[in-house]
């Protein structure tokens, strides 16, 4: 049984693609056959984050239009044996995606025996974003602890509850998970940033993880390596925890408490 997971947020720049890449890689590392689809037609970026931009020949729109077979367009990931990337088209506009086309592609991935299909949603609440969540069984709502991101996440939650297939057909609703990214325990401690508890209280969605603000994310995108592969970094650990919780394991939250630097550290510097 294939599970479709949408990574969405409403607002742009909060870490949807970083999360899609890390999360899909994490599922593959756990042995699940996973596909990650870029729904951002016209502004594709998942290929860059996954480091496969030079291997893109056919894309999602080519498959929908029957110009290529799905297995011609799927790119095998360089780090994980059972992970495949379906890039978005860079030259078409967002109207090139159709609900029927997306449904056919997802059905075909099901027939190919994929365990998980991760849909990387574009920002906004228009066609691309709605199509990315239409077929979802679960949703990872990516949110920064910041007013506009929280409000937009609330909006996208409303859209999930009204426009997904599950909602339209009156089935069990899409399972929602809240992922807080770019979290700075120091600023929360100083009262400058909403805490993860505040955000969760506002959005009332089960928290699946907190990803700390970190330099590693830029290192990861610079090299085209999903952040989960940067062993030993807090971001990699935090994403591994997210994947574990998604798979039903119990993991305590990490990287959410601020430790005040001691005197020596303050005198001699250090991160």
């Amino acid at each position: 049984m294939t599970r479709v997971v949408v990574v969405t947020s409403g607002k742009g720049g909060v870490g949807k693609t970083t999360t899609s890449a890390a999360f899909a890689s994490g599922l593959a590392l756990r042995g699940y056959k996973t596909a990650v689809i870029d729904f951002d037609v016209g502004l594709r970026n998942l290929d860059l984050i996954m480091g496969c931009e030079r291997r893109v020949v056919y894309d999602f729109v080519n498959v929908i239009n029957g110009e290529a077979k799905l297995n011609q367009a799927l790119i095998k990931d360089k780090n994980c044996e059972n992970l495949f990337v379906l890039p978005a088209s860079q030259t078409r506009d967002k109207d090139a995606l159709t609900e029927e086309g997306v449904e056919i592609v997802i059905k075909e991935l099901e027939h190919m025996g994929f365990d998980y299909v991760v849909c990387d949603s574009p920002a906004g609440i228009e066609r691309g974003a709605v199509l990315a969540l239409t077929f979802a069984d679960e949703a990872i709502v990516t949110t920064n602890p910041e007013v506009s991101s929280v409000r937009d996440s609330d909006r996208i939650l409303g859209i999930l509850q009204s426009k997904s297939r599950r909602a339209a057909e009156g089935r069990e609703p899409v399972k929602e998970h809240l992922l807080i990214t770019r979290y700075s325990p120091k600023r929360v401690d100083e009262g400058e940033m909403l805490s993860y508890k505040d955000v969760q209280e506002l959005l009332r969605v089960q928290l699946i993880g907190v990803i700390p603000e970190s330099e590693s994310v830029l290192h990861a995108s610079n090299q085209g390596t999903p952040a989960i592969h940067l062993k030993g970094t807090d971001v990699s650990e935090a994403y591994s925890d997210v994947v574990a919780r998604f798979l039903g394991e119990d993991r305590p939250l990490r990287f959410v408490d601020y430790e005040k630097p001691g005197l020596i550290k303050r005198l001699f510097g250090g991160k």
Partner: peptide
């Protein structure tokens, strides 16, 4: 006043 608490109040109202 800490700005995070202002943010929370504003969001509670708007949501």
């Amino acid at each position: 006043k800490k700005t995070a608490s202002i943010a929370k109040e504003r969001l509670q109202l708007i949501i």
